[in-house]
């Protein structure tokens, strides 16, 4: 069965790009456009992995991280932050809140696929 990936991102064009990228390798992608929706979706769908933007409306990515990593039911879902925030302190803050990885925009599809494989424990062919 295809792995379920939740993409929390509010930029339409980035959504299109990342979705195309994930569709191409057969992931089952769910899209949410703000932090509040992200939290609801995780509780409802329990995805295998979350790709999380930091700057989002309503509830930002840091809050989402805090909520999900502080909850026994969701704390083991790997979260990869995908963000334009390239400052070291932003990375540190996200990692301290429990993010599994942190990728700065822009990135190449291969870099994203490699990370997904790593955290979904898939072996490369």
């Amino acid at each position: 069965m295809a792995k379920k990936v939740l993409l929390a991102e509010d930029e339409k064009n980035v959504i299109l790009g990342v979705r195309t990228c994930l569709d191409a390798v057969g992931y089952d992608v769910e899209i949410v456009e703000d932090g509040d929706e992200a939290l609801n979706s995780v509780r409802r769908e329990h995805p295998d992995l979350i790709l999380l933007d930091l700057l989002m409306p309503k509830v930002d990515g840091y809050e989402v991280l805090k909520e999900l990593k502080g909850n026994d039911v969701t704390k083991d879902i790997p979260i990869i932050v995908l963000t334009a925030k390239a400052e070291e302190e932003d990375r540190q803050r996200a990692m301290d809140l429990g993010a599994e990885d942190y990728m700065t925009k822009p990135f190449k599809p291969q870099e994203l696929w490699d990370l997904l494989k790593q955290y979904l424990h898939e072996h490369s062919d």
């Binding site: 930029e11 980035v14 299109l16 790009g17 334009a84 925009k105 599809p109």
Partner: peptide, 15 residues
């Protein structure tokens, strides 16, 4: 601000 639009471009071009 440049990073976000570049993401769409780079991902699209690579694919």
């Amino acid at each position: 601000e440049f990073r976000t639009p570049l993401t769409t471009i780079i991902v699209g071009v690579e694919m």
